[in-house]
């Protein structure tokens, strides 16, 4: 509702004050461009979807693996946790060109960027889930004679699943952003590439088309993961005793 209202205000304002199209195009012309330009940009769209999905899969696998390793080896957690946080303080915008210098213009540096953006929220959320494992259930597992493997697979892993999914959902939206950023730097296709082209030729309407698709994609990934979450996570995260 609020969104529709905003769009209406935007439309009337840009008509009323005669804002030039290259500064702020009205929603109608963005809509027009979305339809007319489809055949021009749809391959960019597919490229970005592909890139962000592959990046997301790699990034979340890395994220989950790192979380499991850090959880199972406490020494490693002490040593690496601060490094993880530092890694997130390096702006990706600075890092990305460096990666291009090191790894060229291929798909590798792009995947590294997305992985870097994705793994962090997953690792942190999953680690949190592991650490908050109920002490009572843990005590029961010990009394029942469960070994480390059983405790992990029967207790800690299912317990961390809801946290893992909140990490995955954040990462899914980040992955689209990561893909677009990596495409700005050196790509021959993708929404990021399309966006740079559009903005340097003052086709502001196309920039907005790109934004529209970035938002839509993020929402789509988010929704997809929420759906999977409902299928996989069978019980509420916390049992109210």
């Amino acid at each position: 509702m609020v969104l529709i209202l905003l769009i209406i205000i935007w439309e009337t304002a840009s008509k009323l004050f005669e804002v030039p199209e290259w500064i702020l195009p009205p929603p109608t012309s963005i809509g027009q461009e979305t339809i007319i330009g489809w055949s021009d940009y749809n391959h960019h769209l597919w490229a970005t979807i592909q890139l962000s999905v592959i990046g997301f899969v790699i990034g979340s696998s890395v994220g989950i693996l790192v979380a499991i390793c850090l959880h199972l080896v406490p020494v490693l957690r002490e040593a690496i946790y601060p490094l993880l946080i530092i890694s997130q303080n390096i702006p990706i915008i600075i890092l990305a060109p460096l990666l291009v210098v090191w790894f060229g213009f291929g798909i590798l540096p792009k995947l590294i960027v997305i992985t870097l953006v994705c793994f962090f929220p997953i690792t942190i959320a999953t680690l949190g889930g592991f650490r908050q494992t109920s002490r009572e259930l843990h005590h029961y597992m010990l009394m029942a004679g469960a070994n480390k493997r059983q405790i992990f697979f029967k207790l800690e892993w299912p317990h961390a699943l809801p946290s893992l999914f909140s990490g995955l959902k954040i990462a899914a939206t980040y992955s689209v952003m990561g893909a677009v950023i990596s495409e700005w730097l050196g790509a021959s296709e993708g929404i990021g590439y399309y966006m740079t082209l559009a903005s340097s030729s003052f086709r502001t309407d196309r920039v907005f088309v790109a934004i529209l698709f970035i938002v839509t994609l993020s929402l789509l990934f988010f929704g997809l993961l929420s759906f999977v979450e409902r299928k996989v996570v069978k019980a509420p995260a916390q049992e109210d005793e």
Binding site: Y140, A146, Q150, L161
Partner: peptide
């Protein structure tokens, strides 16, 4: 560990397991 069967003070059921799966847990371990 593992030589006695144990029932704790609070039920300590696993929230993601059904009643049946919870009952089977001790045996499973």
């Amino acid at each position: 560990r593992g030589n006695i069967s144990y029932m704790p003070q609070n039920a300590s059921l696993f929230p993601w397991r059904t009643v049946l799966q919870n009952v089977l847990l001790g045996e499973e371990i």
